[in-house]
Design a protein around this nucleic acid. Structure first.
Lengths: 302, 302
DNA sequence: TTCAGGCATAAGCCCTCCTTATGGGCCGTG
DNA sequence: CACGGCCCATAAGGAGGGCTTATGCCTGAA
C-alpha cells in the first residue's frame, strides 16, 4: 500500500526530528539541545537538516554565535512545544496514573476474610495507591482483563505468570461453640455425624472423613447445598446451622473471638494453596512490587 | 551525560510507538492501524508491546475479535490524539505556510524599475503567494537571512547557489530631452562634455568614455557625488540635472514615454549581469519554482 | 469441524540515526 | 593582527532499532 504510506509520511513530520527541533527552538542552540537530548551536536544538526528538507524551508538562520528561528520556524515552534507538553503529560499520567490504581482480582472468601482485615495496613504504607478489588471465582486472564494482580487457589502451576504461595489451602471442620454444646461437645470426629453438615457434597468432606476414619457413605445420604464460597458456609456455621469444612487460615479472627471453634487438629490437604499471581513481565512495576512485598510480609508475620 | 539521557528518556515516550498507539487506539485494531501507517501488523504489535513495557501497564486488552483500551490506554488516547493533531497542523502550516510568503531580496533599482512594473502579473498568476521584497545592496547569505530568492548583479559565479541570467548589465548615458535640447541636442559623444555628469567617479563612465574615444581626464576634473543606486541617478537625470550612466534595460519605460533619452547606441559592458539566485537545494520548492518560471518568461517575452 | 480473521512471536536484515573526526566561520583577546 | 575558542556543517563508519516475512495460536462463525 505505497499510496497510503506516502500519504501518511507527508501528513506527519519525522518525529525524532521534531523532537530535536523542539529542543533546539527552546535553547536556540544545537549544542545545548543535543546535550539535553543526550546526543551529539552533529546528530542535532543532522536531524534539523532532515526536517528542513521535509518542510521545504529553513527553520533556523545560522548566525555567527547563535541561531534564530526563521518565520517558518517561529510558526512551528509554539505548536510543537505544546504538542510535546501534551504528549509528555499524557505519558507521565499513564505511567503514574497506572501506578495509582491497583486492580486486585481475588477470591471472595479471601477478600472478605483476609484482605478486608489487612488491607488497612497496605493503605497506610502506600497512601497514594488506590486498591480496586475485583471479586470473582473466575481465573482471570491478565491479557484479557484489566487486572494487575490476583489471588488464586490451586496447584500453583500456571504458565506465564509469577506465583508466590501465601498459605496452604488445608481444610478442617468448624462449627459454632453453641452447636457443639448442643450435643455436649465435639470430642471426636464421629461426634460430627450427629450434627448437620454444610455442603456434604464437597470433596473436602470426603477427604477429611477418610483421613479421620469416618465412613464416607454418611456424606452421600445427606441433603446438600453448596453455597459456592467458604465465607458463606462459615457464616452459616457461625449461625449454628451446621458444621462447615473450611480453610483454617482464613478464619483466625472467628477462632480468636470464639464465633467458631476448630474441634480437631486434623486438617486435610489436597495440595492446593492460595497464591499471589501476576504477569511475569510486570514483576518490577512499582505498585505490583509494593503489593507483593506487603502481602508476603503480612503473611509471614501473621 | 548519561543522567541527562535517562532523564529525557523517561520524560518522553518513544515517539514511533506513540504514533502507532494513536492509530491503534483510533481503529481499535492492530491490523487496520498498521495498514494506515503503511507497515505490517507485526510491526504495530511490536511497537505497542514496547510502549506497554515503557508505560508499565497494558494499554489494550486482547479480546478474541477485537481489542479494547485499558483504563491506562483510555487516559492516554485523547491527549495523544490531540497532540498529534497539533503536530500535524503545525507541520502542515509550516509546509504550506512557508509556501505562502516569498521573500525576495533585490537590488533597489531592479525593484523600483523592473519588479514594480511586472510583479502585478505574478500576483495575478499566483494569488495565494504573498511577495515580500527586501531591498538592499548587500549580497545576502541564504543561510543567514530569511530570504527565498534574490536578484543580484555581478559575474554570476557564486558557489552553492543556482543562477539564471536575466539580462546583461550593460550601461549607456541617459539624459532628459530638455537637457539635451539646452545645448541644441546631443549628437556625438563629445557633446556630453558640455553637460553636467552625474557621479563621474563611476567606473562605468570611464569604461564608456574609453569606448567612445573621449578623454577620461575630463571625468577626474569633475565634482562627483555618488547616489548609490541607478534609480537615484536616473531620477536626477529625469529632473534635468545631468547625464547619468545606467543600464538601459531598466529604464525602458522612461525611454518609451520620453522622460529619458538614450543618445547613443554604444553601450558599455563589464561582463556583469543581473541574475536570479537561490539555494540549489531549494530549486524544487514550489514557490521558488513558480517565481523562477514567471520571471524568466517575463524577461524573455519583454 | 473447518475456516477465516486477528494478534503474538521468532528470525533476520536493512536502513536510520548516532558517533567520531574534521573543517570553516566568526568573535574576543592578548 | 594573529590566535584560540565557540559553534555549526559535513563525511565516514558502525550499531541497533524497527521493519518484514513466516508461522502459530486462539476464537467465533459457517
Amino acid at each position: 500500500m505505497p499510496e497510503l504510506k506516502s500519504r501518511q509520511v507527508s501528513q506527519l513530520p519525522p518525529l525524532q526530528a521534531i523532537r530535536v527541533f523542539e529542543a533546539v527552538a527552546r535553547h536556540l542552540s544545537f549544542t545545548k539541545a543535543a546535550g539535553e537530548l543526550g546526543m551529539t551536536q552533529a546528530a542535532a544538526s543532522y536531524q534539523i537538516k532532515l526536517l528542513e528538507e521535509r518542510v521545504g524551508a529553513p527553520l533556523f538562520l545560522r548566525r555567527p554565535r547563535q541561531i534564530v528561528l526563521t518565520e517558518a520556524g517561529q510558526r512551528m515552534a509554539p505548536a510543537v512545544s505544546e504538542a510535546f507538553a501534551l504528549l509528555g503529560g499524557a505519558y507521565a499520567a499513564a505511567r503514574s496514573g497506572a501506578d495509582g490504581v491497583l486492580c486486585v482480582s481475588t477470591l471472595l472468601t479471601f477478600a472478605s476474610n483476609w484482605l478486608a482485615r489487612h488491607l488497612g495496613s497496605f493503605q497506610v504504607a502506600h497512601p497514594s495507591l488506590a486498591v480496586r478489588l475485583d471479586t470473582s471465582n473466575r481465573v482471570v486472564d491478565f491479557t484479557r482483563e484489566d487486572i494487575d494482580i490476583a489471588i488464586r487457589s490451586g496447584g500453583g502451576n500456571w504458565p506465564g505468570v509469577e506465583v508466590h504461595k501465601l498459605f496452604n489451602a488445608d481444610f478442617t471442620p468448624m462449627l459454632s461453640p453453641k452447636l457443639a454444646a448442643s450435643i455436649g461437645g465435639v470430642k471426636e470426629p464421629a461426634d460430627l455425624l450427629r450434627l448437620p453438615i454444610l455442603d456434604p457434597g464437597d470433596i473436602w468432606w470426603r477427604d477429611w472423613f477418610i483421613a479421620a476414619g469416618l465412613p464416607v457413605e454418611e456424606l452421600a445420604k445427606r441433603p446438600g447445598s453448596s453455597m459456592g464460597a467458604q465465607a458463606y458456609e462459615a457464616n452459616a456455621a457461625i449461625a449454628g446451622q451446621g458444621v462447615a469444612i473450611v480453610t483454617a487460615a482464613l478464619f483466625n479472627a472467628e477462632l480468636a473471638d470464639g464465633r467458631l471453634i476448630q474441634p480437631f487438629d486434623l486438617v486435610g490437604d489436597d495440595g492446593h494453596a492460595y497464591w499471589l499471581v501476576y504477569p511475569q513481565a510486570r514483576r518490577n512495576v512499582p505498585k505490583i512490587r509494593a503489593f507483593r512485598e506487603w502481602i508476603l510480609a503480612e503473611i509471614a508475620g501473621q
